[in-house]
Design a protein around this nucleic acid. Structure first.
Lengths: 115, 115
DNA sequence: CACTTACGAAAGTAGATGCTTACACTTAAG
DNA sequence: CTTAAGTGTAAGCATCTACTTTCGTAAGTG
């Protein structure tokens, strides 16, 4: 989780992820998009993204084709969702603790996503 | 955006965010939860979170009460969602370009979230 | 085989990050 | 006014990060 967030903290890496979101692309093509840094730097960015499992790699001859790992990105979204869900669960737990022998006594907690 | 992702890349900061998710809490109380680092270190973590606008601060006497900024966290979620939505939009644009003078010629693109 | 293409890996560097200790500041309380 | 409580800030340090340049290596091409 640490590595995924850290990988996304870098704008170039977010841009790479967008480039290969809906289709794979060779490293050279990705590197060509960044005129201000070397191909080697881009290769290292790809390494960071791969380490975070945010992208997937496939080899074809001398080329390496990259594509976004949608599953891992979805996992990140779920992680953020959990902040809301966990607090919801904590409120439920508190309500339950405060009302131990409740016999359908109309709890009606009406808890919502408060944002 | 950079700062928000970088702030979340640190496990202790994610923990702080959870602590103050559903209610405000003074800095001293937050610091007490972390036994392995000093109060000063926690104060600096709070600074990073505030810089990223992930938390909000309120003063009460000598104390400073912190709480999570749900709006900014929601914005992060939306940002991740955009990865899917943008590629969807690009596909729509491509379809439109390939079919310039379409006269209700049953496009029915049926594009889905591919993850 | 020699040569090129397409890459990652290694080494070095300036700047960022996470920590500690020491200090300064603001507000309440005696 | 003096003192204590609650916190941020400054300085210093080890480690990480994002680069660059150079080198190594696997796979096609003549």
């Amino acid at each position: 989780m640490d590595t995924a967030f850290r990988a996304l903290a870098e704008p170039r890496r977010r841009e790479i992820l967008r480039m290969i979101w809906s289709g794979e692309m060779p490293a050279s093509h990705i590197a060509a998009r960044f005129e201000d840094i070397t191909r080697s730097a881009v290769s290292q960015h790809l390494g960071v993204l791969r380490e975070a499992e945010l992208i997937l790699e496939r080899r074809d001859g001398t080329r390496r084709l990259y594509r976004a790992n949608h599953a891992e990105m979805a996992r990140l979204r779920s992680f953020l969702d959990a902040y809301w869900d966990e607090s919801l669960q904590r409120l439920r737990d508190l309500a339950e603790a405060a009302e131990p022998t409740s016999q359908e006594s109309s709890p009606k907690t009406t808890i919502e996503r408060n944002h």
